[in-house]
Design a protein around this nucleic acid. Structure first.
Lengths: 348, 348
DNA sequence: GTGAAAGCGCTAACAG
DNA sequence: CTGTTAGCGCTTTCAC
């Protein structure tokens, strides 16, 4: 701006005003001159200077763990966050925390020790280090938790209701024997790891999806047929277990699965038994990605509403930035039902 | 800092020096006092102010398109970028561009029109809007392209060499009839879209993987057995086509596939023919995710080296920041060979 | 219509 | 060892 002012023979505030909100107060000549010189010099406003004056960074940070067992960074979430942030001329910053170090006393990650964003959106899906919660409270930074069911300031996919929706869909198609299959294991088929000082050690969706399933079948007067335990089941055991289920004389005519991995096992086990999806077995699964297919057939899916949750979280964060002391009530976000090609009426 | 200075009865620069690099110059009393008061007040240095003084934002932006056909935002890439950035105490900012608007004259996205990062890492995998290249040149912002083969300032996975490595592995296991299967289609099975003014309209990996395959089999004195065209093949046609290939009397004993989707088709088609992987057919695929499995069996994979490429891109960007005018030579990044459970010696 | 002055938070250079 | 001064780029206030 100094250079522009010098070249145009004007003062710095004049340049600033013309380029900013007060250009109407200046003569057309001055305006044109400033704009032209600015273009010549390739002027780009410095966002740090802006931030310093305005007291706002115009930016939110997405906080995740470096430990892939504790949080992930899905593309759709980032898109949802960014979509809402741009509406408010803000942008997104990524902050990955080395959470092992939390045990060290006095360790404070940079996102917390420096002020570089107007607020934080925290995606610790599995277990939240207690030290981190404390640090955030101490630092009084506006923060919203996603994929977590806390007392407040959080959003989470409504797994409970999602399972209900799935069961109701299957019931509406005439199914009366609807099974739920969930072999819970962590990514990469590692055995479960327990962290002593974490607030939660299991993702709430494991309990919520099952609870939603149970309530929905009970409400419809149907039996609960469940396969899978909360214990670790290695991937290569999925198919034999599902095969047993589908080989029963009173086999289910429809299956709801916790993840796509279980859905795959259903398709393969069915094929091995000479059954076909959806002719003999209807299939609905929870999943984070849309349009996943098995054997070229799109699987009917309850899609984790990552984009919607992202937008919701940003809206919540903006309110927290305005009123940092308020505790906002948790916001459940409904799943998206993505019709696929794996539901049909049950055979006779 | 002003508040700390007031409370401690010291000057602002004293506080700054104690909290900064020059604390050794002050008496122990002063240091302790400052540190204590800072803690009491919950002092957090303001990164914008720092940026303004230092002339560095301490931050790089990852530029992607809002159009999912043109770029993606994989977790592993972000991790690689961030891993290298933290080594230089920098962080990552996400910038998603509304690229349809490039056609509008005078449209300049915020990452380019404002200066808010020290450099850009651009991930337009498929087609790069020409206006964007021009804008970047005009603005003279340090930029590195990833997943693109340009004349310089770029990194890309070495698909050509990856295919060679795969073929050599199979040859080493004794295979002599090695097929390459590639049904190229865009995510979501949409028909190919063409953009008039883009620099490239097809991802180079399509050509490079095939070329690498061809050279490797030729070098080994083996025949090239290829299935698939550059034309759009819908997902449900994969299996019939692969079935034909595997039903031939001189069927290949090993298959290399362009993506996991083709690998799935191989497993399913084989199963339908009463063949088994890897007993009757060995299988290697290119993929972006590690440890993908079919029927509980990990598929031997040439893993797209997203983390390594991210680190490489950051290193390149740092050099460009130091020397903005230099044009750095393209850097190919080798694929990671992830041994799975789908390679075995050919049957008799 | 335009410019002078002042300040956002921080730090480097220098004086004492 | 500590404080004064000055300035990074920008914007607001107010006087001319």
């Amino acid at each position: 701006m100094k250079q522009i002012a010098a070249r145009a023979g004007l003062s710095v505030p004049t340049v600033g005003n013309v380029l900013g909100r007060a250009s109407h107060r200046y003569s057309k000549e001055t305006r044109d001159k400033v704009i032209q010189v600015a273009k010549e010099l390739g002027y780009r406003p410095n966002s740090s200077a802006k931030a310093m004056r305005s007291g706002r960074f115009g930016c939110a940070s997405l906080v995740v763990s470096r430990n892939r067992r504790l949080s992930d960074l899905p593309q759709m979430l980032i898109e949802g966050l960014d979509d809402e942030l741009v509406q408010h001329s803000m942008h997104l910053m990524i902050a990955r925390l080395p959470d092992e170090d939390f045990s060290k006393t006095d360790f404070v990650p940079k996102v917390l020790s420096e002020s570089m964003a107007d607020g934080m959106i925290i995606n610790y899906t599995h277990s939240i280090p207690r030290e981190m919660q404390d640090l955030i409270c101490d630092h009084q930074v506006p923060a919203v938790w996603i994929n977590a069911r806390l007392r407040g300031d959080c959003t989470y996919p409504d797994d409970h209701n999602g399972a209900r929706v799935a069961v109701e869909h299957l019931v509406a198609h005439g199914h009366r024997r609807i099974a739920y299959v969930h072999f819970i294991s962590l990514p990469g088929d590692h055995p479960r790891v327990r962290f002593e000082d974490y607030l939660t050690t299991e993702h709430y969706s494991v309990a919520d999806r099952r609870a939603g399933y149970r309530e929905a079948v009970r409400a419809a007067g149907l039996p609960a047929i469940e396969l899978g335990a909360d214990a670790f089941v290695p991937g290569h055991d999925f198919i034999p277990q599902v095969t047993q289920l589908l080989a029963r004389p009173d086999r289910p005519t429809a299956v709801l699965t916790y993840r796509f991995e279980e859905a795959e096992a259903v398709v393969i086990a069915a094929a091995q038994l000479g059954l076909s999806v959806p002719r003999d077995v209807s299939l609905v699964t929870f999943e984070t990605e849309p349009w996943r297919a098995m054997a070229g057939r799109k699987v009917t899916t309850l899609l984790v509403p990552a984009p919607q949750e992202g937008r919701e979280a940003v809206r919540m964060l903006l309110r927290k930035i305005q009123e940092p002391t308020a505790v906002l009530p948790p916001v459940p976000v409904p799943f998206t039902f993505v019709p696929g090609e794996t539901i049909a009426p049950p055979g006779p």
